[in-house]
Amino acid sequence: MRKGKLSPRGDGPFKVLEKINDNAYKIDLPSEYNVHNVFNVSDVSSCVVVSYYPWAERLKNNATVECNDNGAEFLEVQDSIIPSPSDYGPLVSPVSKIKQECVEKTFDFSASKLSALQALVESEAIQYPTRNEVVNALVYKCAANAASSANPHQLVQYMNIRESTSPPLPPTSIGNILTVFSTPIHKGDLGLAKIVADIRKSKNNCSTTRNNEHNEWVSEILNAYSTGKGTFHQRDCDVYISTSLCKYPFQELDFGWGKPSRARLGGHSISKYFALMNTHDGGIHVSVHLTEKEMSIFENDKHLLQFATPDQQQ
């Protein structure tokens, strides 16, 4: 927003409270400005973006967004946009997540340790456990054991559904074309084989679901939007969220100055969250987010340290 001639040339951003008409908007100004808070479009700077809408379309069903540009209204201001105001909700500004008190630490599972972990699980009657299955199971088990409460708990994992759509989409398709699948709610300490079996069964069930008609992730978002609470906050248990990026070739990226010696995700402020990435030597690098108290227990878990090494570069 632009001020008077003798004032600084701009200020903000400020929230749009109300659309008066096509040329005038009511702005949420601090009281110390002592000016009327209805402004002409010409007085709204192109750099002001006060909110973000995830959809400019209509929800067609429980899993589909119809791209017809009839969704949220937008005001074009020079080379930027200001969306119409909306009520409070988790998707008003989804680019900024609710911050939680947590710390991040990373752990490396070498190729040899992964093989040993897979052999351990396979010895308990689980056929051909995958690297992702055993790492997710161990990290989830140790994180749940480190929890400060005795609440029941559940593991939720993201799943890429490009290949399962009809017709299948190419892996380079842009967008969050995904869903989630959840293990049953667990209580107490569980064996690794039991957790791996639950992960596998839940994933298989998700793979056979018509995710273009019923998508658990979309249902979770819509539920959060209607209640004004965050995703997974409606479940009667502690939810641990995991995402695997092991199929993404981060280690092969080359922007002209060589491939990276290592790669990692940016920081997150969400507790009970972990992410998996490949390493150069065929291992898996895991980023774990827990409260400080829980992390102090987790990082000293003897079962975890039997297979994982704390990252010395963090």
Rank of each mutant, 00 (worst) to 15 (best):
S45P: 06
R235Q: 13
N300D: 11
T227G: 05
R262W: 14
E18W: 03
H186C: 09
V48A: 13
R264D: 01
L245H: 10
V156M: 05
S287I: 00
K293T: 12
Y273P: 08
E122D: 02
I27Q: 02
N132S: 06
G191A: 04
E213K: 13
E104S: 12
F74L: 03
V16G: 01
N215I: 01
F298W: 05
L91T: 09
N70A: 07
Y53G: 10
G191S: 13
T309W: 07
P167W: 06
L192K: 02
K229I: 02
Y248E: 02
E252I: 01
P249N: 01
G258E: 02
H153D: 15
Y248C: 03
N70Y: 14
Q157N: 13
S51P: 01
W217C: 07
R210A: 14
T243H: 02
V239Y: 03
F232V: 05
V48Q: 12
P54N: 13
T243C: 11
L245N: 11
L192Y: 14
T179A: 09
M159K: 02
V196N: 06
I174C: 01
D254E: 02
A125L: 13
K187H: 11
S84F: 09
H186T: 10
N21V: 08
V95K: 08
Y225K: 15
V103Y: 02
S261N: 09
A111L: 07
I241N: 10
D87F: 01
P168V: 07
V65T: 04
D198A: 09
W217M: 13
D79W: 14
F232H: 12
S242G: 00
S296N: 09
E299W: 02
E216N: 15
E124R: 07
N62I: 08
N211I: 10
H36P: 12
A308R: 00
T279M: 08
Y240F: 14
H153M: 07
N211C: 12
G71I: 08
A224S: 15
S202Q: 01
P168T: 06
N40D: 15
V35T: 08
E220C: 06
Y53N: 12
Q314A: 05
L190Q: 13
D238C: 05
L59W: 15
G10T: 11
C142F: 08
Q306F: 00
R131T: 03
I199C: 07
Q100R: 11
V134E: 05
F250C: 10
N145V: 00
W217S: 14
C102S: 09
F232C: 11
S182L: 08
G283W: 04
A63G: 05
M159F: 05
F14M: 03
M277W: 01
